[in-house]
């Protein structure tokens, strides 16, 4: 892997390769987490180690993690009790245009590529000081405890240009594996690319824009939740009790038993 040996950020990159993550479609299955760990443990760079994986306090290095958030909309006149929405939220390196993790690096190990904008770590130069992880607002970098070097998403740089793989596999492992089609990969610097058009059509957004990092990766907001109140009664008539009060002999027995001493328990 070639290294840009200065931690100055390029003024601009030829392309802006990145991910578009659809929060409306993600089902929170964590398949991308596992495929990412699998590919990046077996391929470029130091493996993603686990500590005490089968013990009482397991932890490990991951480049992609899926959070889940509950969003409770404000009550309005039209919707006095709006239903909360569960949003699954995959998070990995956003390959920022103004990446603070690159400029803070004291050794030049951390760099942003001019040709495609991918942010990478040259592991043989990394001293494991952790300052790049401190500077990242997104928690995209994790220091591997076994190797003592910083690990981060490479956008599967060893897949996307890999002529040994069938063309269909030359996309990041997380995108390839997503069963819901919630992850998209492409050039976000080209306004005509599929991913750029998707971002424009769906109102793609930046995470923590106030940090000034200018993330390349975009998130597509979830669509408004269906109004469950309107459809919940579809089966209700069929489930209504047939006889509320007993009649005939059972009705007489019910009343007679009520009159016996001992109360109506």
């Amino acid at each position: 892997m070639e290294g840009g040996q200065m931690t100055e950020l390029p003024a601009q990159t030829d392309r802006k390769m990145g991910l578009v993550i659809d929060l409306d479609t993600c089902v929170g299955c964590h398949a991308c987490v596992i495929s990412c760990k699998g590919w990046n443990t077996e391929n470029y760079g130091a493996p993603l180690s686990d500590q005490d994986p089968y013990g009482a306090d397991p932890s490990g290095t991951f480049l992609n993690r899926v959070h889940s958030y509950e969003v409770q909309p404000q009550a309005t006149g039209a919707q006095p009790a709006p239903a909360a929405q569960l949003v699954h939220f995959p998070k990995s390196c956003l390959h920022c245009e103004d990446a603070p993790c690159v400029t803070v690096c004291p050794t030049g190990a951390s760099y942003k590529r001019v040709e495609d904008g991918i942010v990478l770590v040259n592991e043989s130069d990394c001293i494991g000081c952790g300052l790049c992880a401190w500077s990242c607002p997104y928690g995209a970098r994790e220091l591997d405890l076994a190797e003592g070097v910083m690990k981060k998403c490479t956008l599967c740089v060893d897949r996307i240009y890999n002529d040994n793989l069938p063309e269909v596999d030359r996309i990041p492992a997380c995108v390839r594996t997503c069963p819901a089609g919630a992850r998209h990969f492409g050039d976000l610097g080209d306004p005509d690319s599929d991913v750029s058009q998707l971002v424009a059509a769906r109102g793609g957004m930046d995470l923590m824009p106030e940090m000034g990092t200018k993330p390349v990766n975009k998130y597509l907001p979830p669509r408004p939740k269906d109004r469950i109140e309107d459809q919940i009664d579809v089966l209700a008539p069929l489930l209504a009790p047939v006889a509320e009060e007993p009649t005939g002999f059972l009705g007489w027995l019910d009343k007679a038993l009520d009159k016996l001493p001992g109360g109506n328990s």
Binding site: Q5, T103, V104, C105, P106, G108, C129
Partner: peptide
């Protein structure tokens, strides 16, 4: 190696 990136770090 940490002496090399004084321009930004």
């Amino acid at each position: 190696k940490a002496f090399s990136q004084w321009r930004t770090s």
